[in-house]
Write a protein that binds this DNA or RNA. Structure first.
Length: 939
RNA sequence: GCUCGAAUGGUGGAAUCGGUAGACACGAGGGACUUAAAAUCCCUUGACCCGGAAGGGUUGUGCGGGUUCAAGUCCCGCUUCGAGUACCA
């Protein structure tokens, strides 16, 4: 009987569906295990061979855990909302709902062919009302909350307003956008609109006017993690800073908890480090400076409090509100010109600029340590969003200040003994402080560290400053001027935002004809007036406060992509619940994700947001765990191997790789599917595209050889390998094995189909252990030899150990060795072969199920138990130990295997060593190691 | 610039605690079976050297030092590549 993978895989795909093999329910009798993959957004390109890498790895682990007796949750779904899905729809001129649906179907079809153990009854799609109901619900909870700094957790905003009404801001410790001081009387005297504005300063989901990353091409604002090097991650379009009113999430309130939580979770050091850098905790000092000839004051933040005596000027960020306040009449024109010019520059231009620019405000600040006046400048090298948007400049010890001082010829005062600042600043936080003596305060002779501490103490005591911890982590901008996202469950009463009543959730996304974004930032939902009014009339009983004429009554923006992906792991636990995001009993059973697999690209996006989101839900007890993902494994990227042809400029002639230097050529990507071992299929190339129909070729050795490069796997590079083709040609089990065999799961590697034959051969060899050449079924009871048992127990040991560290590649090697040994031994023992099938089941489930059935089992191999190994089969009575001396001579010695190292050394010492090797020297030490080497130390 | 990671045959990669470097697979070469091809099976395969052969020797894990009886692995100093981040005061 031949190994017919097509029939076998088809049969088991059907059986699994019929038998609901992968359905999972809460079972208090069994320990739980939650395995999760980062869910995909269904792009139009379909799956390529890189996508299933993580799914296969987690599927193997999930199947293994199930065989170990765990109740395993292994769900899958789609991250269907957001920019990528919408961009694809726009490019293909279709409605995003249509393309998304189509793409999901395609993904599902492809996934089904690979044999995953997903429980599809738990599928979620972020764009379905039943799902985004709970995204909207969580947003509303955040709106109704503030972050209490005394309790270090979110609290209902009602508690906050009560306090305000009785005591004002006195004694309130809450995370806030800016510091406010109000008495109870002031608060109570405020109108509703003003009160609403004040509360925005504290709400966890709040409406704030701030500088945002505006991307005109995409027609939307973007969060910080969606912008890299001044351009959008998606599409690479320029991004400019613009002041806009946006919904934001007060992620910054959770900065310290996000940092502390990293200590409690099992993630790789590199991704934890990335998050630490992104959160960017920085301990420093805030110091207040007076403005000369004025009663104005402003505060700066510094980590180098020791350099107070080296301040020679101050700098304000152009966007800072202090700029207009501090600019003198004479300088106003110049400053305004500079500020306007800055506004026009893109973020990228600002970063690329090598020369420092700036302008003097005309005002001076008084250094509280020296009482001397220093000029206040404006420059775009100071960021408005960090610290206070103003700095004290110490050119001697900060390279940026140094460059600025040099550009504008400002003084430089060195403060560290022996440092040379004639060419560049001395930035290192080391050395002995000098030149730092004021009226009754001196830092001279102290180390930098001591000087910082002394200055902190001094400014605190004098009331001119305080110790301050700053975080780089900003609040997340939560509005997008886009169509394809969750609508905000918000309406407006005379400009005051109100939450749509909970019983009206979900607020469904309307169908609109014009869903394209606009460059001016007018949200597409503005076209859905009917929807807006219908919603208001249906849900708001008292709509008298809503302006019927001029104001659009609903929030027009939609939520960003990360909204839907922030709590999906909770929804998988209880996906059909209409009463709650997740039932608390169910949540307490599954608790958190035990093993999360996904790429590193989400380190500063999704993996921060969902930790934040979960912590918020945890504060109210909606999620029982503080951290959502206990262990995180990052799968590496599978890169593509692109091929090139070389067209001679201005012709339709193509020259082979080895001869291309003799011509003036342009390299052109060519579809890797019409290239074999870098040799181009000429006819297929001519048929590939009409413009190549009449192509001519300059060949070498009768062949056209293509060039190649390792690049990202993408449609535009024509290097995409579709898993469907691999499955058709070799079967899903071979694909699964080969993807794992390629290398360690966490490493990036190029896809190379060449090695796949090895895995395919291996499965055939497994099959041949069961079926002889003449069609005979070989397994029989009780024919195990000691060699058989040794081979199989060695395998159990290796595969079990590898499983816990996800070293699937070496396990597959071990399988190959074992199967080779069993074939050589002509093993027919049913028990041994059955064990082999059980071990293979997580890796190659289809063939394992088939063989399991043929061995006479009626249940699924998924429910078989994981085999345990027995040391006694692995032991040998004695082994030959070779002894070398002076690195040359050797002789051997028999030694028991279970002997201790010390005894082995003693035995070796006592052994009669042939004197001629020793040349009269005395043996002082013999070193024995497990691998049978003994070294002899002589005197 | 800063942070983290990596470097082993023609290729992907093994080597657990410092203990026979190159497992396993691909590719390549040779052979068997076959009219032939495919498929399958067997042998060789880091480099260099000695030998007719069996066999033996030297060298070898990016570079330079060090620790150790013993280093791919540990320590110090570099080089190159990759990833993240970047005017964060």
């Amino acid at each position: 009987m031949e190994y017919n993978f097509i029939e076998i895989e088809k049969k088991w795909r059907q059986r699994w569906v019929e038998r609901k093999t992968y359905k999972v329910t809460e079972d208090p009798q069994k320990p739980k295990y939650y395995v999760l993959n980062m869910f995909p957004y269904p792009s139009g390109a379909g799956l390529h061979v890189g996508h299933p890498l993580g799914y296969i790895a987690s599927d193997i682990y999930a199947r293994y855990k199930r065989m170990k007796g765990f109740n395993v949750l292994n769900p899958m779904g789609y991250d269907a909302y957001g920019l990528p899905a919408e961009q694809y729809a726009i490019q293909t001129g279709q409605h995003p709902a249509v393309t998304t649906e189509k793409n999901i179907d395609r993904y599902r079809e492809q996934l089904d062919r690979i044999g995953f153990s997903f429980d599809w009854d738990r599928e979620v799609r972020t764009c379905e009302p039943g799902y985004y109901h709970w995204t909207q619900w969580a947003f509303q909870r955040m709106f109704e909350s503030y972050y209490d700094l005394d309790l270090s957790k979110a609290q209902p905003i009602s508690k906050f307003t009560e306090h305000l009404a009785q005591h004002g801001t006195e004694g309130l410790h809450a995370a806030q956008t800016e510091e406010l001081h109000l008495t109870a009387a002031e608060w109570n005297a405020m109108g509703e609109a003003r009160q609403s504005q004040v509360l925005m300063n504290y709400r966890i989901a709040y409406l704030g006017e701030m500088m945002v990353n505006w991307c005109p091409e995409l027609g939307t604002v973007l969060a910080n993690d969606e912008v890299v090097e001044g351009v959008s991650v998606r599409g690479g379009y320029p991004v400019v800073q613009k002041k806009m009113k946006q919904w934001c999430l007060r992620v910054s309130a959770y900065a310290q908890r996000l940092l502390d939580g990293l200590e409690t979770i099992d993630w790789t050091d590199s991704i934890k480090e990335t998050q630490r850098n992104w959160i960017g905790r920085s301990e420093g000092t805030e110091v207040e400076f007076r403005v000369k000839d004025s009663d104005k004051k402003f505060t700066i933040f510094t980590t180098r409090a020791d350099t107070m005596f080296g301040v020679t000027f101050m700098v304000l960020a152009p966007e800072s509100e202090l700029v207009s306040e501090l600019t003198t009449a004479e300088q106003r024109q110049a400053v305004e010109a500079y500020v306007n010019q800055t506004k026009k520059r893109t973020e990228r231009e600002r970063q690329m600029a090598t020369e420092k620019t700036g302008v003097f405000t005309g005002s001076y600040a008084i250094n509280p340590f020296t009482d001397s006046a220093v000029p206040i400048w404006v420059s775009d090298y100071v960021l408005a969003g960090y610290g206070t948007g103003a700095i004290m400049a110490v050119p001697a010890h900060d390279s940026r200040d140094y460059a600025f001082a040099r550009a504008f010829n400002l003084p430089i005062i060195p403060l560290i003994e022996g440092c040379d600042v004639s060419e560049q600043s001395f930035d290192a936080k080391e050395g002995i402080v000098t030149n730092s003596e004021g009226k009754n305060f001196s830092l001279n002779g102290l180390t930098v560290k001591e000087a910082i501490a002394a200055t902190k103490k001094y400014v605190t005591e004098r009331g001119i400053g305080r110790v301050k911890v700053n975080y780089r982590l900003r609040d997340a901008i939560f509005s997008r001027q886009r169509y394809w996202g969750e609508p905000f469950p918000v309406y407006y009463e005379h400009g005051i935002p109100r939450m749509i009543p909970e019983e009206c959730l979900p607020l469904e996304l309307p169908e609109v004809k014009k869903f394209l974004p606009t460059e001016t930032g007018e949200p597409p939902l503005g076209n859905a007036e009917r929807w807006a009014w219908d919603t208001v009339n249906k849900c708001i009983t008292d709509n008298s406060k809503i302006d019927q004429k001029t104001v659009f009554p609903l929030e027009l923006n939609t939520m960003p992509g990360f909204a839907g992906s922030s709590a999906y792991y909770l929804r998988y636990m209880d996906p059909h619940n209409t009463e709650a995001l997740v039932d608390s009993k169910v949540d307490e059973y599954w608790r958190q994700v035990d093993l999360y697999i996904g790429g590193t690209e989400h380190a500063t996006g999704h993996l921060i947001y969902s930790r934040f989101w979960n912590k918020f839900l945890h504060d109210y007890g909606y999620s029982c765990e503080e951290e959502p993902f206990k262990k995180l494994v990052n799968q590496g990227m599978i890169q593509g191997r692109s091929n090139f042809v070389y067209r001679i400029q201005g012709t339709n002639r193509f020259v082979s790789f080895g001869l291309k230097d003799e011509y003036d050529v342009t390299p052109i990507h060519v579809d890797v599917n019409i290239v074999q071992n870098d040799v181009l299929d000429l006819e297929a190339f001519k048929a590939w595209r009409p413009e190549y129909h009449d192509a001519e070729f300059v060949l070498e050795n009768g062949k056209y050889v293509c060039g190649w490069a390792i690049e990202k796997m993408s449609k535009s590079m024509y290097n995409v390998v579709n898993p469907d083709h691999i499955v058709e040609k070799y079967g899903a089990d071979t694909l699964r094995l080969y993807e794992m065999f390629l290398g360690p799961i966490n490493m990036s590697k190029p896809w190379d189909s060449n090695g796949i034959d090895g895995c395919s051969r291996f499965l055939r060899k497994v099959w041949n252990l069961f079926w002889g050449r003449d069609g005979q079924f070989l397994p029989q009871e009780g024919t195990a030899t000691p060699e058989n048992l040794k081979s199989i127990h060695k395998l159990i040991k290796k595969v079990s150990e590898d499983m816990e560290v996800y070293a699937y590649n070496t396990s597959i090697s071990a399988f190959m060795i074992c199967v080779g040994e069993l074939a050589g031994q002509k093993c027919t023992d049913k028990g041994v072969l059955e064990t082999l099938v059980r071990l293979l089941a997580p890796y190659a489930p289809h063939i394992a199920e088939e063989l399991w059935e043929q061995l006479g089992h009626e249940d699924s191999v998924c429910d078989a138990s994981w085999p345990e190994y027995d040391e006694t089969y692995l032991k040998e009575d004695s082994e030959t130990i070779s002894i070398s001396f002076n690195g040359k001579t050797r002789f051997t010695l028999q030694m028991p295997t279970d002997i201790s190292r010390q005894d082995a050394e003693k035995l070796a010492l006592e052994a009669e060593l042939t004197p001629k090797y020793l040349e009269g020297k005395q043996v002082v030490k013999v070193i024995v190691v497990p691998h049978r080497i003994v070294n002899i130390v002589v005197k």
